[in-house]
Amino acid sequence: MANPFSESERAAVYRAIYERRDMRHFVRGPVAPEVLERLIDAAHHAPSVGYMQPWRIVRITDPAVRLALHAAVESERIKTADALGQRRDEFMKLKVEGMLECGEVLVMALMDGRERHVFGRRTMPEMDLASVACAIQNLWLAARAEGLGMGWVSIFDPDDVRALLDIPTGAQPVAILCLGHVERFYDEPMLETERWATRKPLKECLFENRWPEA
């Protein structure tokens, strides 16, 4: 093996992976500028297909813009609930974001002009989105290592967010990220605690050589 981490360093990496949580409950207070800089730099060092680096990060510092984004999320939350049928009331009881309490709100988006990048995307153009997801995961794990919580909000209409943030045609908002201090990290994913879903056994997701017959 080439230059492996020490045992304690490996343990820290795996700890960040297993203790990362999609946080919804935050303690009000700012994120230190030097910590935020480290986190955003970690996101920027994510892998990307064809080294296209398609992520664009909009930091929301205007309280009015944050409130407008929150209103857009709330509007879509109600529409999502209505689309869930019998699970509507159950969904409406869930806390799906912490946008008004967290220290920082970041909007992660795909850049415009992505059609120029063919390397790795000729048959799978969605690899630009996969690359942005890697940047989000980098930020998430780094935040956990710093003792900060992060929540990924995807309940919004991209056109609403695009208009609010003057995102150009061709670019695509992907996630609203809530980042900040937390009183504690959830012992397990919140949707497991709320009995919305459970983690699938690994054997249902891992195959060998071929997809098994149903």
Rank of each mutant, 00 (worst) to 15 (best):
N3K: 08
S6K: 06
E9R: 12
E9C: 04
A11L: 06
V13I: 09
H25G: 07
F26G: 00
R28C: 05
G29M: 00
G29A: 01
P33V: 03
P33W: 07
P33T: 03
V35Q: 02
V35S: 00
V35A: 05
V35W: 02
L39H: 00
L39A: 00
I40P: 01
D41W: 07
A42M: 01
A43S: 03
H44Y: 09
H44K: 13
H45A: 02
A46L: 02
S48E: 01
S48F: 00
M52S: 10
Q53Y: 15
P54M: 05
W55L: 12
W55P: 04
R56T: 10
V58Y: 15
T61I: 08
D62I: 07
L67H: 07
L69P: 00
V73E: 00
K79R: 14
K79D: 10
K79N: 15
K79I: 09
K79M: 14
T80M: 15
A81H: 14
A81R: 12
D82C: 12
A83I: 06
R87W: 13
R88W: 05
D89N: 13
D89Y: 15
E90V: 14
F91R: 11
K93P: 05
V96R: 07
V96H: 07
G98N: 05
E101L: 08
E104M: 14
L106G: 01
M108E: 07
M108T: 14
R114S: 02
E115W: 13
R116P: 04
H117T: 12
V118H: 14
V118M: 09
G120D: 04
R121P: 03
R121K: 15
M124C: 15
E126K: 08
A130P: 02
A130W: 03
A130L: 08
S131P: 01
V132A: 05
C134L: 08
C134W: 03
A135K: 03
I136S: 09
I136A: 11
I136M: 15
I136P: 00
R144M: 02
R144P: 01
A145I: 06
G149S: 13
G149A: 06
M150L: 15
M150Y: 05
V153H: 04
I155D: 05
P158F: 07
V161N: 00
A163V: 06
I167K: 09
P168A: 11
T169H: 12
G170P: 09
G170L: 09
Q172Y: 13
P173S: 03
P173M: 06
V174K: 04
L177K: 07
H181P: 07
E183H: 09
E183W: 07
R184V: 07
Y186D: 12
Y186K: 14
D187K: 15
M190P: 10
L191N: 08
R195G: 09
R195H: 11
R199P: 09
K200F: 13
E204D: 14
E204Q: 10
E213D: 12
